[in-house]
């Protein structure tokens, strides 16, 4: 009987060394003894499909179609940043309040700060790694940009040297205007003077 127990012990050791422990890293697809209904026939986002020749479940838009959520009217300032006479909008076409600025700050921190920096001075983290062309919002050219032009940079990428690619897929038009408002706030903040501080708060800043 002792031999039987010994053989069992050996088999257990062998099995454990083959199967490993919980949490071990492995590269092969996970083992599935009973697939149940884990993989059903419907298509999932960003998944593969053997049905289409390009192998994707997500279908690309056919040429020349426009998403139903976009206005067909080319003159809509909210979506294109242009006035009816095709010039860039000078002001932001939505109500600018604290809520919009807070949203803009949040989105700016996610999508713009890695390059343009939290202050808008162009010294984001990527500058140390070779994104040397990121400009500051405070030079003459960028201070002179109209709201519509900044909106257009976010929507279609920069027009100057084409070094910045579009962010339209990540930011909805409303969010883009929120970011524009926050960029304006950054530009304003960097050029503030003691006169801008309300009289009641001057003492706190030691002015």
């Amino acid at each position: 009987m002792r031999h039987v127990y010994f053989a069992t012990f050996l088999i257990v050791v062998l099995a454990v060394s083959a199967l490993g422990f919980r949490g071990d890293r492995f590269k092969h697809p996970p083992l599935e003894l009973f697939p149940d209904m884990d993989h059903q026939a419907h298509l999932k986002p960003q998944a593969e499909s053997a049905f289409f020749t390009d192998g994707r479940a997500d279908r690309p838009l056919p040429p020349n179609v426009v998403a139903a959520s976009l206005p067909l009217d080319a003159e809509d300032g909210l979506f294109r940043g242009k006035a009816t006479d095709n010039s860039w909008l000078k002001t932001i076409p939505v109500a600018v309040d604290a809520k919009l600025l807070a949203r803009g700050q949040d989105r700016y921190g996610i999508y713009c700060a890695p390059c343009h920096g939290a202050l808008g001075d162009g010294n984001g983290i990527t500058k140390q790694y070779g994104m040397s062309t990121t400009p500051s919002y405070l030079d003459e050219r960028r201070l002179g940009l109209t709201a519509g032009e900044i909106f257009n940079v976010i929507t279609n990428g920069s027009t100057q040297n084409k070094n910045m690619l579009p962010y339209a897929d990540k930011l909805s038009p409303e969010d883009r205007w929120a970011v524009v408002a926050y960029v304006r706030a950054l530009q304003r903040a960097q050029r503030g003077s003691p006169a801008d501080v309300p009289a009641a708060n001057r003492k706190e800043l030691g002015l």
């Binding site: 009987m1 127990y5 949490g23 890293r25 492995f26 590269k27 697809p29 996970p30 083992l31 599935e32």
Partner: peptide, 28 residues
């Protein structure tokens, strides 16, 4: 012996027949 074997089998299933072993650590 059958009891011991049953115990080992139960422990093995408990430990291995779960996502905690089968999926955790998957790094393709």
């Amino acid at each position: 012996y059958l009891f011991v074997l049953g115990g080992i089998a139960m422990a093995g299933i408990n430990y291995y027949a779960t996502n905690k072993w089968a999926n955790v650590g998957y790094a393709p």
